[in-house]
Amino acid sequence: MTTATLELSPAPDSWMAVCEEARLTPGRGLAALLPDGRQAAVFRDRAGRAYAIDNRDPFTGAQVLSRGLIGTADGRPFVASPLLKQRFDLETGRCLDDDEVTVAVYPVRLT
């Protein structure tokens, strides 16, 4: 079975392959190392949509957001940090529990 490849854009106009789509369990994430040393957290939801945000949990500094659980709140997808459980919108990077905090979001596509 061939599956699509998940690609991520670490910077404008550049795309990199992350993994085969099937590597991602729906509802869970994985971490990816970006060319400049940053880390991204990539996720796939039940419906097959993919998301990528920065992997660093801004509250603790640990690179762990990829290990959080994803969910839906008011119809929008989020991930909850596995450390102190703050939630981040997967499409905007906005923290749902603290207006002052956002994390970077990366465009993704399946090819």
Binding site: R46, G71, T72, A73, G75, P77, R87
Partner: peptide, 13 residues
């Protein structure tokens, strides 16, 4: 409103 969604970090575990 939650049917068909992802659930959340409370109900999933």
């Amino acid at each position: 409103g939650a049917k068909g969604g992802e659930g959340c970090e409370v109900c999933k575990p």
